[in-house]
Design a protein around this nucleic acid. Sequence first.
DNA 1: TAGAATT
Length: 348
Amino acid sequence: TWLQNNSPGSPRTVAGGPAGPALPNGPLLGTNGATDDSKTNLIVNYLPQNMTQDEFKSLFGSIGDIESCKLVRDKITGQSLGYGFVNYSDPNDADKAINTLNGLKLQTKTIKVSYARPSSASIRDANLYVSGLPKTMSQKEMEQLFSQYGRIITSRILVDQVTGVSRGVGFIRFDKRIEAEEAIKGLNGQKPLGAAEPITVKFANNPSQKTGQALLTHLYQSSARRYAGPLHHQTQRFRFSPIAIDGMSGLAGVGLSGGAAGAGWCIFVYNLSPEADESVLWQLFGPFGAVTNVKVIRDFTTNKCKGFGFVTMTNYDEAAMAIASLNGYRLGERVLQVSFKTSKQHKA
DNA sequence: TAGAATT
């Protein structure tokens, strides 16, 4: 069921045609004799949102032996970011993958398979958002306007879904961030030849940077399916401080802590990935209220997360809301178990 | 005035 029609407004490949060859901008061999992966490592763009790592691997593994592959996902929500990397053992298989899979239509997407550029800071944050374009300007014309500032990796003009007419906004991704910076300096506020209005050129927002509000909305929707009533009814019911409840036997041995992290409710978070770090916990729990401390438990030798961590929150109701919302939450391919910390821990 | 392009 992957095969379907292309959608209008799909990005057109530039800079050397579809999946153009990588520029020889890296050494062929490292000083230690390590193999050059510029001819085996591919980047795959415009993957369907619901494609999994396994499906991704299966698709590209059908070409040849894969050294490694990775579907890139949002660190917090685990959602696919729509692109991934495949490193083949044999450069010939990488070439074959480009020739046979680039342009493949999967659901509403047309995937792009091309050589990955060597990863470096200089190629990050090189995407520009352009608005105020003349409706008559084509993608090619937009590229011509911007190409004087550097090598364009991809470009796109957004069009009305119904009429197909340009909406006057688009994106330009340069090879290098400095090229994008120069393009802003040279073109922001300028009128293209013959245009009536000046265009606006600025760095594009990063679509993967979800706000706490967006995360909350996402969590509310997922937890609302698992709980009978609206969550805010619970929220208003309890509002007592940890100090006031201290000593109450009803909740003895549960959650409440008063250590170096300060008084608060200690929450146990289980089934984190080995790559999890403190920022993940901050971003997961921060939207629910006052968080005073987070800790990822790591293996002493590997420094990888051992699969669990702790979060301390100041207010009971906010902690309870976080637990109700995040327990059972799917983070990537894992389902979190979240509860107040108890004296006898993680037996399940 | 908004796309999932660097692990």
